[in-house]
Simulated assay, not measured.
Amino acid sequence: MFEKQKAIIYSVIIPTYNRSSSLLRLLTSLENISFPRNRWEIVVVDNNSTDDTRIKVKEYWKVNDINISYVYEKRLSFTVARRTGAEHARGDILVYIDDDVSVGKEWLKSIEEGFLNNNIGMVGGPIKPKYEEKPPKWVTEMNGIWLSLFDLGNHIQDVERIPGPNLSIKKKVLDELGGFPPDTIGVESEGKSEVIEKIYVGPGDWGLCQKVRSAGYRIIYHPKAIVYHHIPPIRLTREWWKSRFRGEGSCLVIYEQYEKKFGRIMIFLKIMYSLLEFLKSLIILSITKVLGIKKKEINIFWVIFSLSKAKAWLVMLFKPSLASELWEMGLSGVSSNQIKQSDRFIRFLR
């Protein structure tokens, strides 16, 4: 770990894995924000990267008059990386952003404005797309939330949720609530394969938002706290979207089984219900295609989503404790070898 010591209030936490070029683009955008440099820091959490991430951050650190820390976290888990960032942060406000975004000039200033009101626990803002190539029409017709896009207009307002790529929270609130729930285990291949290796195991930032509101804190959306999500070509492919919907479907099952601890009889009923959902979505899709009807909520991805839920419940039938095991792995992290040597039940969820 290396760092420059200065008094700060805001800690910009960036979990990263094998995206040194994207990370450098983000760091460069942070140089240009209109906010006093002695009031914020950057904490880069390298989640077991195998590329030149450490070298790039160190080079950046040497030539820029900015508060920056580099922390290596070998346990693969988004939740662990976020927690490690919080542990090394010196600010009262933890500003979480993803490594594949860049920020607007008024971004941090607007986050500060969002926290000026009473009883604010969390602040976020728009996440706008920057496609690396022109997206196909079917992508733009999908709900942008699947690409972590978010835009509620031009007014400051109370909201129920803020997406993780642009999420700020008071450190004392995060500590009070016990941190982020599990999110994902493993990492996304980002074009090196058509398959996404990571497993979605919990509600992550959405779950944290629920905890914040349940504790009586407000969540604020500020329209000028803008980040731009850089979307690579792999995320404009049907293979990526299928993988995403498969992951989200199995995640719902893992979360429900972790919460409810169903026995095998109830799990069997869940399998039957999920299969009916799958058949219903398949029939509706077939009818709409014949009739030439197009709707966002009716497409092959939702068919895959329903099927993935049925498959996940089938896995739980044979191993009901798997959900709790995955939840704990999400909280504690795993090594690269553990991911590669994961048992057949976990591989079946991918």
Rank of each mutant, 00 (worst) to 15 (best):
S34K: 12
H222P: 00
S332P: 04
I33C: 01
K6S: 09
R244C: 10
T28I: 14
S102G: 08
N67D: 09
V123F: 01
I304M: 13
S110C: 07
L291G: 12
N119A: 11
I199T: 11
F348V: 14
R246Q: 12
K280W: 15
L108H: 00
V201M: 04
W327K: 03
N166G: 04
P36D: 12
S22A: 14
L279Y: 15
E59L: 14
S332A: 13
S336N: 08
W107Y: 02
Q5E: 14
W146C: 06
E59F: 06
V43E: 01
V212T: 10
T16R: 05
A89E: 01
Q257G: 02
V315W: 13
Y217G: 07
S148Y: 15
R235H: 12
G104N: 15
L275V: 08
S332M: 13
I293C: 09
E106L: 11
L317Y: 13
I66A: 01
L331Y: 15
E328C: 06
N299P: 11
K105C: 09
S21G: 03
S69L: 09
R344Y: 03
V303S: 04
K128L: 14
W40Y: 13
T184M: 09
Y228T: 03
I199C: 03
K4Y: 13
I8S: 10
H229P: 00
T84D: 03
F278R: 00
A310P: 13
F278W: 09
Y17T: 03
L76G: 01
S306L: 05
S29D: 02
H88R: 15
V71A: 11
M329S: 05
P136Q: 00
Y96Q: 02
I13W: 10
G249Y: 07
L149H: 06
I169Q: 10
Y258C: 04
V227W: 15
Y228K: 08
D92H: 02
K309V: 15
Q338C: 06
I339D: 01
Y200M: 04
I111Y: 11
V315I: 13
D343L: 00
I283D: 00
P163N: 01
K170P: 02
D183C: 08
F180M: 04
N119Q: 10
G104M: 06
I185W: 04
E87T: 05
L152I: 05
E259H: 08
G125N: 09
M272C: 10
